[in-house]
């Protein structure tokens, strides 16, 4: 799942899909945290997952706001067309 997320970020060109792939990476980390936690009987991992979920939600809010702000100025979601800053 982590690898699918990384591949998605690297190959997709739509900002929203890249963003979804990043969420996939975070969720794969969550799954492995829970798995390790139940495997070792140590509850810290499950606690960690709650924090990751809260942070991911905050990140999603900020990220979507940034994408909307950009979309208002330039109606495109293709990250290859967002290229005015180049040397």
């Amino acid at each position: 799942m982590f690898v699918v997320g990384v591949a998605g970020v690297l190959t997709r060109r739509n900002a929203i899909i890249v963003f979804m792939s990043i969420e996939l990476m975070l969720n794969s980390a969550n799954l492995s945290l829970v798995t390790f936690s139940s495997f070792s009987g140590n509850p810290v991992g499950q606690l960690f997952v709650f924090f990751v979920m809260a942070v991911a939600a905050a990140e999603a809010a900020v990220g979507l706001a940034i994408i909307i702000a950009l979309f208002r100025n330039k109606p495109t979601l293709n990250i290859d067309e967002i290229n005015i800053l180049k040397w």
Partner: peptide
């Protein structure tokens, strides 16, 4: 230009966060 900077920073920063969280998961494991 500010929107673009922010979007680029956000996408790559969140990508890096994914790595950090997965790394922490493996260390925890």
């Amino acid at each position: 230009s500010a929107n673009e900077a922010s979007l680029k920073y956000f996408l790559l920063g969140a990508f890096a966060t994914g790595f950090v969280v997965y790394g922490i998961a493996l260390i925890y494991g």
